[in-house]
Amino acid sequence: MGWSDVYYFIMVPMVYAAFAIFMAGIVFKLIVVFFSKKSKGTFSTFPKILPRPLGVLKDAFLVPVAWKRDKILWFFIIAYHAAFVLLFIGHLELIKEFALLQIIPHQVFLGAGIVGIVLIISVLYFLFRRFKSPWRGISVPEDYLILLLIFMTMIVGSHLNLAARYNAAGFDIPVEDYRTYLSSLFAFNPTIPAGITGSPHYVLVALHIFFANLVLMVIPFSKIIHMVFTFLSLNIQRK
C-alpha cells in the first residue's frame, strides 16, 4: 500500500464513512431525545417578552447573553458562526454551480480568503481564551482538542483557497477539478481528477479532507451538537 492508496482512502471511503457517521449520529441523538421522558412541569424563566419561536431564534442567533456579559466573546461567536455559514455555501459551490448562490456574483470560493481567516482568528481566540483563568479551570481536553481539530482543518483549507485564488507558484487546483471530485462522490461514482492527484497540493487536499472527516464524525458525539440542541434547550426555557 502506497501513499496514493492512503490518499484515496481518505478522499473516498473515509468521506462516505464520515458523512454516514455524521448523519446517523445526529439522527441517533434525536431519536434518543425523542424517546426520553419529557418533564412533567415547565422550566420557564421570566419575563418572556417575545413569543416562543421568535424568542428562541433571537436567543440562538443573536446570543444576547454573550452581548450583555462579554462583548469580545460575542463578537467572535457571531464572526465565527456567520463565517461558518459562508464556508458552508462556499463548499456547496465546490460541488456544482448553483445559480441561486450567484445572485451576488462572486468568484468561487467566496470571500476572497477572508472567510477562512475570520474562522481561524476566531478559533484561535476561543482556544487562547481557555488558557486563562477561570476558563482554564472549567475546560476539559475535549474543548482544546476540538478547537485544534477545527483549526487544523481550516488552516489547510484556507491555504488551498488562497493558493488557488492567487495562483501562488502554480499550486492552483481549478474549481472544476473540485467539482468533478465532489459531484462524483455525490453520484456514488467517485473519481479524483488528475488536476488534484497531479497537483503538488494533493497532500494538502487529502489532509484537509482528513481533518474535515474527523470533525464531521465528532460533531454528533461532542459539544458541537449544540448546533442542534441549542434550539431545543432554549425552547424549554420559554415553554
Partner: peptide, 22 residues
C-alpha cells in the same frame, strides 16, 4: 433522571464560562 432536558444540558454546554460569576 436522564430525561429530555437533562440530555440537552449534558450535551450542549460548551464550557464557554459566561455563567461563571453569575
Amino acid at each position: 433522571r436522564l430525561n429530555r432536558p437533562m440530555r440537552y444540558y449534558n450535551d450542549t454546554c460548551t464550557r464557554c464560562g459566561l455563567c461563571y460569576d453569575t
